[in-house]
Design a protein around this nucleic acid. Structure first.
Lengths: 334, 334
DNA sequence: TTGAAAGCGCTAACAC
DNA sequence: GTGTTAGCGCTTTCAA
């Protein structure tokens, strides 16, 4: 920058003004500076800039579980859109469900002085962020609430959605419903399970631990779990999958067997419409989830110091998938 | 940091050493420093750190088209994994196929002094990066070659894959093959089209412009294009979809019609196995593509100054999808 | 409207 | 082993 100033025959400050589009600079001088910038291939150093000015790295972070999961990829895209509207760069990082990694990544983002953080919690203790939050780094949690910290949170109506979906299964006469979940340690799983119970208990369906399978982490183990349940005497007539990864394994196994079991699944996704098995999906607006959180974050970055808010977004039941060999009409509209 | 030094009764430099895990510090002093750090809630400022040390922001950038596309999401995940192995943060940005946005994002990443850049080109002129590259920011291009710039590039064998796939269609007796592509302006599309021609021309199949549809940007327009082609006299007996988005629309329309047209599609993806229509997919290892590029980038960051390399990864033909109403065996193994 | 000087938080280079 | 000094590239005073 000093070189540019020398070349243009002006002071450092004038170069700074021109580069920042600040007012009160004579057009003639500005032109000289711009010419020097071009000739010398000058590139502004944003690190130095935000070091001196104290704030505004024009960067926010998004911490998710796994980028390759369409649920998170969609969230990332929606958040990036909002960030772009605020001339801010979005940094996406994956915790891979590992609380230690989550902690390290969040610390790192703080050390880099990001303007704000969007977090899908992996661990259940976020008190280590309290100092950061108090020092002024806004944090908004998505999809799951933080642990040990009061902060803005945007959630889905997990419990209500599960209640409605299972309620419909019960109305259709199902009494034996196989439930598959990732991990009871995860907030969303607990909520969805509670919602199922909300519908099952009043209907007089007894608790049967053999119908609930915890620890179903990927499609393959979901398929195995379905196979085992179906091969027992008195098999389930319906399955409730608590997330999109599990749903894939359930569909695959039921399709393979030519089964006629009913499927209820949490999480909608693009290709669900084209899967070769009919199902009812508990859907919600993933983009809206991310958008709401990002907008809340920019409100905070903009100086909003009101009480932390919790927003809960609704879910709805939709039909997805196609019946193998069925008439064309089986395809749901987009 | 000065506060910490005062509190611990040591010098600035000692604090710096402790914070950086540098050697030659008495354990006793280190402990005092650590205690002061904890008490004062000190957080290291990485901006200042990398400003002073000149290099190493421990950040690389990945520029893609669209995060929600599983092709790019998978790339991002693989690249993030390699970055993690080098204690580096991966910043993902979407150009949305807009050359102007690409340019701005790359400039921004340079201004933030990223250690290196992974780029899936959107535009066809990257000469604006030359100054950066010469100043020492390594750039590796993926999936498409850069324009007006000599740099490391990792590509797929688009042409060979298309040639092999279309060759198989011809062997099976197809002469009328509908070809659907996004935009002839995109390198990969041109290569894939050339590969198709490599197989069609020697087989004596005449050129018929009505069988080639350019500008198919999304599933809905792919579905429309398929419908139109099928409704003409002498319709195609096979379709060649040149990317994964187009494939979805093709499958949807053929399924809806209960058609028996043969499908060849470029790009494999997770759920392709479960789509309700049989198809041959030109597949490749997306993770390997990203991994190779990222590893090359870290070689450069590590100081490798050898000649720019171009790596071409192979493709293979695999069967995907299921036949509506068919026996369970229709499901391809994972 | 422009310029000179001070300093953001940290680390490289040296001296002790 | 530890401390002192200077300065990374920029912006913020405040004076001209």
């Amino acid at each position: 920058m000093a070189d540019v100033a020398a070349r243009a025959g002006v002071s450092l400050k004038t170069v700074s003004r021109v580069v920042n589009n600040a007012p009160h600079v004579q057009p003639e001088l500005a032109e000289r500076v711009l010419a020097a910038v071009a000739e010398l291939g000058f590139r502004r150093n944003l690190l130095a800039s935000s070091l001196r000015s104290g704030q505004a790295t024009a960067t926010i972070g998004l911490l998710i579980e796994e980028i390759a999961n369409p649920f998170y990829a969609t969230m990332a895209e929606a958040a990036a859109e909002i960030a772009g509207q605020h001339d801010t760069m979005l940094v996406i990082a994956s915790s891979e469900e590992d609380p230690a990694r989550e902690r390290q990544l969040l610390r790192d983002m703080c050390a880099r002085r990001f303007d704000g953080l969007l977090v899908v919690p992996a661990g259940d203790d976020h008190s280590f962020l309290r100092a950061e939050v108090e020092l002024g780094t806004p944090v908004v949690f998505l999809d799951r609430p933080p642990g040990g910290l009061l902060a803005d949170t945007v959630l889905l109506d997990n419990r209500g959605g599960a209640r409605a979906g299972v309620g419909r299964l019960i109305e259709a006469g199902h009494r034996r419903i196989g439930i598959l979940l990732d991990s009871i340690g995860v907030y969303t799983m607990r909520e969805r399970l509670d919602g199922a119970q909300d519908a099952l208990a009043p209907a007089g369906v007894p608790y049967d631990s053999r119908l609930i399978r915890d620890g179903v982490g990927d499609p393959a183990s979901a398929a195995r779990a379905v196979a085992e349940m179906l091969e027992r005497p008195d098999p389930p007539t319906a399955f409730f999958s608590l997330n999109n990864r599990i749903t894939l394994g359930v569909i695959e196994e039921l399709y393979r067997r030519g089964s006629d079991a009913t499927v209820l699944a949490f999480d909608d996704f693009d290709l669900a419409r084209l899967l070769p098995y009919p199902m009812t999906v508990i859907a919600y607006d993933t983009r809206e989830l991310a958008r709401t959180a990002a907008e809340l974050l920019f409100l905070r970055i903009g100086g909003d110091r009101s009480w932390p808010r919790t927003v809960v977004l609704p879910t709805e039941l939709v039909s997805r998938g196609v019946t193998p060999g069925a008439a064309p009409a089986a395809l749901e509209p987009t």
